[in-house]
Amino acid sequence: MAETTAATPKIRIRDLRKSFGSNHVLRGLDLDIAEAESVVVIGGSGTGKSVLIKTITGLMDADGGTVEIDGVDVLKLTPSEQHGILNRFGLLFQAGALFDSLTVLENVAFGLVEAQRMPRAKAHKLALDFMGQVGLEPSVGAMYPAEISTGMRKRASLARTIATHPDVVFFDEPTTGLDPIMGDIIDELIVKCVKDLKITALTITHDMDSARRIGDRIAMLYEGKIIWQGPTSEIDNSGNPYVHQFINGLEEGPIELVTRRA
C-alpha cells in the first residue's frame, strides 16, 4: 500500500459520478483530504451529500471516477479487499443506526467483537471506556436504544464508531434532530475525537454552526460538484455567490434562481 505523503492526500476523489436513473446526483466530484484533516462538505438537502459518503464507503456503487485512500482506489477493489478497507473506516449515521436488538453496551462493543474478534468480556470493558469518553454513564449500557434519548443515541453511535480505532471517519449530519445545546456537545465530542485520535474526518452537514466548529476546511457541494473549498476561516469571504447565499440562508441568489428554472 502506498505511503501517504504531502503530495498524496489521505483521500483523493476524482471525477466521482453517481446517478439514479435520469437523476445525476454526483457529476464529476473532485476532493482531496489530507491526513488528520477534518473537512466538512456543506450543501442543501438532496444535493447528494449522503450519496457521497455512501459511495466512498462502498455502501453504494459509483458509476465512475476514483476514490483513493492512501493511494489505493477503493472503488476497484474486490469485495474481500473492500472488507479489509472497511476495517479502517468509521461511519456515524444520521440517526445513529444503533442495533435495536442489542443493548447500548453491546452496540458499542459490536465492532470490537465482530470485526476485531476480541473476547466479549474484554470488548465490553473497552466499550465502557469509550462510553465514558462520550459522556455516557455505565448504567446506560444496559439499556436498549429505544429507551434512551436521541442525543444519547448519537453519543452511543459515536462511541461505537471510534471504538474500532478507524483512521478515517465519516460523519453524516451529526447534529440533525438535536437541540442546539446537544448539537454543541456532539460537535465538541467529534472535534475532541478527531484531534485526540488523529483521525481523518469527512463530515457532511447543512448546519453551518456545526460546520464551522468541526471543519478545518469546508467544501460546498452543488449540482453534483464541489463549487468552492477553502479554510473554515475564509468561508465568510469566499467571494462565491452560491456559498454566500447558502451560509447566510438568503432567499435570493443563484441557488434559488436555478431551483425556479428547474
Partner: peptide, 18 residues
C-alpha cells in the same frame, strides 16, 4: 426491513460484518 430503512444494515457493513 426496519433495519434496512433505519440504516442498521449499512451499519453492519461499515462494522465489517456481512
Amino acid at each position: 426491513g426496519t433495519m434496512r430503512v433505519t440504516e442498521q444494515v449499512d451499519a453492519l457493513t461499515t462494522l465489517s460484518t456481512n
